[in-house]
Nucleic acid binder design. Structure first.
Length: 607
DNA sequence: ACCGGAAGTG
DNA sequence: CACTTCCGGT
């Protein structure tokens, strides 16, 4: 299944999402917005303003007009456009800056980090206020091809090769569509654009901003091509430090924005900056089970990343998903059971400039920052409620439903739809948070899945996934399931080679026992635990994650409530590693499996 | 303004 | 799917 021997790179077949992937779709709104934002010509109409990622639409109707022109929807108006924008809330691409008229804020974690992990988000500094994503690039920076689905879709996020592969693929095919769809209709935008933009028509052009010109295409492949000694640019190929490069000159010490060709796509440069670790070329994430990597490298890589997540609040999504690897979680679990971090006040980490101190080994408290997410995406058709858990309709975001559905499936899942209001402090988010960019990811909890879910070691939960087609599915629900991202490995038992060693056995389910039945109980327990955690972490922070979950699993409700009532504070979350592998059903999503495993692990493997 | 459900579209 | 259109509600 490996593949493409033909193409030269090592991505397995599954890495290439079938045509299903949004090959060349029409331009998307957020992309368009970004485009406008990028051009000074439109600064009178829309511009960055305020916090990081915040922008204000100065002339709503005009923006709408432009959008309408681009989409050939003459009837477009701000009302409609804003509706579209609102849809982004759930997708978390955007959110509204409350109180400020026509002001929205991008969630670059999703857009940039996830999609293009190699872009250093930390470089916000230096750039004025609202800091465009990769500001340093200033006007030169071209937003990467906008393929939100690539970006946002759980199925294609970093955990899966999807992102890159699709990018690569498109590059290879020269069919980059995205922003500024070639459809010539985009005159509107072009008008103001200087010649600089129209360099080439090929892929190069589209990626110009994203990748260093030299880096595109073959370089990209080389870079990410995996083993085989690729990855080193030919002499003379300077990939960083180029002003034109989208990779901003990293504000951080170390090499420029791009860590170097050897850097895996999954590595955001930030971490590299403070950690000596240099990814080995052989370390190509996303190869999943098929790719054999050097455990050591992997280990360091993971650690580095993990750390960076903690230290810099990088989106965990920026990391690839390593099915069998356990990333040591900086003690979060142990986070002083007794001392509920009194100060969970959202001390937002500095939004823009990240301080560079590297505390190598010591990480601070789990995550002090408060993060607020948009309300969980509701499936639009939740109205009929029962429709389904399994309904294929679950959108990328809704995938959690699927997962949940799985969990609940056996039991009656039908029930009146319960609309849970987010506990949230929605407000706080906006104004208070300041940093919400780094927000969600935190491992804290994720909410929807954005979080990095450390794969569980448990046994080789090896992803059945990776092997085949079900990858999509798995990935999908996988990530979304919030629930499952618990602190995984005990901090002290980081990845041991043995752990790393386990590879996914293609086609093989986890050794976990079969018997999905107990999935539910597990879940319940997990939930309880989780709730407690939540409580500790932030009393009222659960927000949508919960919300969503709740919705998705009303059946579990009671349990949650119970825990919430503060019933048994006895946190059973001992992370003892030893735990009998819990049973799980093969067909259950890997997430489920993981969760299950985790759960059992945590609650001393009962079941 | 802004929100978000619902239905429709390509 | 990512909107577009419409709309009732705040």
């Amino acid at each position: 299944m490996k593949t493409p021997g033909d193409t030269g790179f090592a991505f397995p077949d599954w890495a290439y999402k079938p045509e299903s992937s949004p090959g060349s779709r029409q331009i998307q709104l957020w992309c368009f917005i970004l485009e406008l934002l990028r051009k000074e010509e439109y600064h009178e109409v829309i511009a960055w303003q305020g916090d990081y990622g915040e922008f204000v639409i100065k002339d709503p109707e005009e923006v709408a007009r432009l959008w309408g022109a681009r989409k050939c929807k003459p009837q477009m108006n701000y009302d409609k456009l804003s509706r579209a924008l609102r849809y982004y809330y759930n997708k978390r691409i955007l959110h509204k800056t409350k109180g400020k008229r026509f002001t929205y804020k991008f969630n670059f974690n999703k857009l940039v980090l996830v999609n293009y992990p190699f872009i250093d988000m930390g470089s916000g500094r230096g750039v004025p206020q609202s800091a465009p994503p990769v500001p340093t690039g200033g006007s030169h920076f071209r937003f990467p091809p906008c393929t939100p689905s690539d970006v946002l879709s759980p199925s294609e996020d970093l955990r899966s090769p999807g992102v890159f592969s699709s990018v690569a693929r498109r590059l290879g095919r020269g069919s980059v569509s995205d922003c500024s769809d070639g459809t010539s209709t985009n005159s509107e935008l072009e008008e103001g654009v200087g010649g600089e933009e129209r360099g080439g028509a090929g892929p190069e052009r589209a990626f110009r901003g994203l990748l260093h010109p030299r880096l595109s295409h073959d370089s990209l492949f080389r870079t990410y091509g995996g083993p085989g000694g690729l990855g080193r640019p030919p002499p003379g190929h300077r990939v960083h430090g180029d002003p034109m490069s989208p990779f901003p000159v990293s504000p951080l010490p170390g090499p420029g924005g791009l860590l170097g060709p050897t850097l895996s796509p999954g590595l955001s440069m930030t971490p590299g900056s403070h950690l000596p670790y240099t990814p080995s070329p052989s370390l190509s994430p996303m190869l999943g089970s098929h790719f054999s990597f050097n455990p050591d490298d992997m280990k360091r890589y993971l650690q580095a990343h993990h750390q960076s997540v903690y230290n810099y609040h990088l989106s965990p999504r920026a990391f690839f998903h390593y099915p069998n690897i356990v990333v040591p979680q900086p003690h979060r679990p142990s986070a002083a059971p007794d001392k509920p971090m009194t100060a969970h006040h959202h001390a937002p980490p500095m939004p823009h400039s990240h301080s560079l101190h590297h505390h190598q080994g010591e990480e601070q408290h789990p995550s002090p920052f408060k993060f607020k997410l948009q309300p969980p995406p509701l499936g639009r058709k939740q109205k009929d409620g029962s429709t389904s858990s399994t309904g294929g309709s679950s959108s990328s975001l809704g995938s959690s439903y699927a997962a949940s559905g799985l969990l609940s499936n056996s039991s009656s899942s039908v029930g009146p739809k319960i609309k849970v209001e987010p506990v949230s402090d929605v407000e706080s988010d906006e104004e208070v948070e300041v940093t919400d960019i780094s927000e969600e990811d935190e491992l804290l909890d994720d909410d929807e899945g954005d979080v990095f879910t450390p794969p569980h070691p448990t046994n080789g939960t090896a992803p059945t996934a990776i092997t085949n087609g079900n990858l999509g599915a798995i990935v999908e629900d996988d990530l979304d399931e919030d629930v499952f991202k618990t602190p995984a490995a005990p901090p002290m038992a980081p990845l041991t080679p043995s752990l790393l060693g386990l590879k996914s056995e293609p086609g093989q389910g986890p050794p976990i026992s079969p018997g999905g039945t107990l999935c539910i109980p597990l879940k319940l327990r997990f939930k309880r635990r989780w709730s407690e955690d939540q409580k500790m972490e932030a009393d009222g922070e659960r927000d949508e994650a919960e919300d969503k979950k709740v919705r998705a699993e009303k059946q579990v409700e009671p349990a949650r409530r119970q825990s919430e009532n503060g019933e048994g504070p006895r946190r059973s979350l001992s992370l003892s590693l030893r735990a009998p592998p819990p049973p799980a059903q093969r067909r259950a999503s890997s997430e489920l499996q993981r969760a299950t495993a985790q759960l059992s692990l945590e609650s001393h493997g009962a079941c």
